[in-house]
Write a protein that binds this DNA or RNA. Structure first.
Lengths: 325, 325
DNA sequence: CTGTTAGCGCCTTCAC
DNA sequence: GTGAAGGCGCTAACAG
């Protein structure tokens, strides 16, 4: 592989001049510029990006930490990140963690090793302290509400979104209300749990532990939920489901086994997945794509200017009433 | 940021020894090893991975080229790649192309610049010649049937899969058969087009251009298809749909507007998406996840040994009969 | 076992 | 405008 020195020799100039030409630096005579480009052609030269990264101390790479890729929520977020990254000439390095803390820390270590200029954390298991410890190493943006913490973050107000949906159900006369969620840990989940407690208490209802269904991430989980529901002694009359995929699973399987939606069981999903529209599922629209976009922009702005207008960006949600709840 | 020289000074050894300790090289006295690790602690050292890459001439990074991420097919493939990459300590660099040739070439250029050790191409628009031109730069594996071409490839025999599904429909008495596909270009699509021609001819039917629906990638596209279908003069009685998402869109929208499936229109999907199971959609199961796994293994094996058992790996499909066709 | 030394390939001041 | 030279941080002979 030809390197910059070979080019210099071939073109009869210095390596500095070659570098200038290669990087579009202005003050170079037309003559030498031409000679360099000819040498590039002749030697079939291509620059070694690793050397560039080392010399510059930057990579124009951003890391993306997320538990799964094959999931409508996360793949939509990456799509948003990806679009913006493309636009600004950045590349994306993927860190799939499966919510394994070891892997999450590994991603953070990679930031420390300067493998990337910044990191977007779509979701995580590890404590906030871990991120705090790595903040010096480069910008980190979390996709969750961080309260008083001094993190870059872009988030959805899950507490309010949950409150809105729950109040809607209460207003429709529901009292036995449950919900389905991916996992119980993490700030997003805790915010929803709090909203659940608050609204039910406000309505004078005692929340039941059995009305909370955990581990609901995929379509299949919805099938499981409705089957569990059928087997229950005291069934909730309404379910808030934090993923339209799961909600769809519930609605479709309910149709199969003859549970009437919303008469016997009202369903409100989250995401506003196309599937929800097609199935007429009432849902809380979440701006996944925009979340990814904003997350990247935050990182990017930080990298370019060293600061940022607001460290935290909140994104809006919208309750879309359809037929299931 | 402390570097390896600072460590050497601190520990009172040479940089070579530091490097040996850092990389677990055996012949170092226990004493010095300890001194080095203490220096690492004290100086809060972390190695600069870019420098390592430059010095070694390798990155343990593999690139992944694909048009979209937010799509069940592609996100499943990445998931498979990702799982294997994790297992072998590789990282994944994402190149989302939207089937834009410029971007595809950019990814190839990155391989040339040694940004990654190899490249997995999930789908592409650019001609094979482009890949041929970059083969020297590092292993490239294509996820498609490449015939006589000398590429690393892992693929599904789309011709046979299509033939099997079509014959099944013919056997059931269908003659007016159409299909839905993402796009017309690319070897996978061409193989399916050929199978379509062959089987219909074999059944003594003249294929119609209008019975081919292009641009079918997402759920919403299925909705569009069934609406187009309704408006047709001569409607096909059966549709082969190269994505379960699209098939689901068709089936669900058909239900809404009162088209009876499979009596008026038989549907066979592809993928064996959980959604297909839930909706009782007859489908051709495709091993997306395994495709990603194999693709990575092929690259990995090549990188480690410089060769590979078979350059081409074919993966099986399976027709799963359910209720829509 | 350990240290010296020469790269890896490019960027970037500094002086002319 | 241009070139010489030092540096980015680490690895890997080679010599001892």
């Amino acid at each position: 592989m030809a390197n910059i020195r070979d080019l210099a020799k071939e073109a009869g100039v210095s390596v500095a001049t070659v570098s200038r030409v290669l990087n579009g630096y202005p003050y170079v005579s037309e003559e030498k510029r031409k000679a360099v480009w000819e040498a590039v052609e002749k030697l079939n030269y291509s620059k070694n990006i690793q050397a560039v990264h080392l010399a510059k101390g930057r990579t124009t790479i951003v890391g993306v930490m997320l538990p799964y890729i094959h999931h409508p929520y996360f793949s939509a977020v990456i799509e948003g990140i990806s679009k913006e990254a493309l636009r600004y000439g950045y590349q994306l390095l993927l860190f799939q963690t499966n919510y394994d803390v070891e892997r999450e820390l590994e991603a953070l270590e990679r930031l420390r090793m300067r493998q990337m200029d910044g990191l977007i954390v779509c979701s995580h298991e590890v404590d906030w302290e871990a991120f705090a410890a790595y903040q010096e190493e480069g910008p980190i943006v979390l996709c969750e509400q961080v309260g008083e913490q001094d993190f870059l973050a872009v988030y959805i107000d899950h507490y309010q979104a949950f409150v809105q949906a729950l109040r809607y159900l209460v207003k429709k006369g529901h009292r036995r209300i449950g919900y389905c969620i991916g996992r119980m840990t993490g700030p997003n989940s805790q915010a929803r749990a709090a909203a659940y407690q608050d609204v039910l208490r406000e309505a004078g209802v005692i929340p039941r532990r059995q009305w909370i269904f955990e581990g609901c991430l995929f379509l299949e989980d919805g099938k499981r939920v409705i089957e569990q529901w059928v087997a229950m002694e005291e069934r909730p009359s309404a379910l808030l489901v934090t993923s339209d995929q799961v909600a769809a699973g519930i609605v479709l399987q309910a149709g199969r086994i003859g549970v009437r939606i919303p008469e016997e069981l009202a369903i409100i999903g989250f995401d506003n997945d196309p599937l929800a529209e097609l199935l007429g599922i009432t849902t809380v629209a979440l701006p996944h794509f925009a979340l990814g976009e904003k997350a990247f922009r935050l990182i990017h702005h930080w990298l370019e200017t060293g600061n940022v207008h607001r460290k935290q960006v909140e994104l809006p949600t919208q309750l879309i009433i359809r037929t299931t709840g």
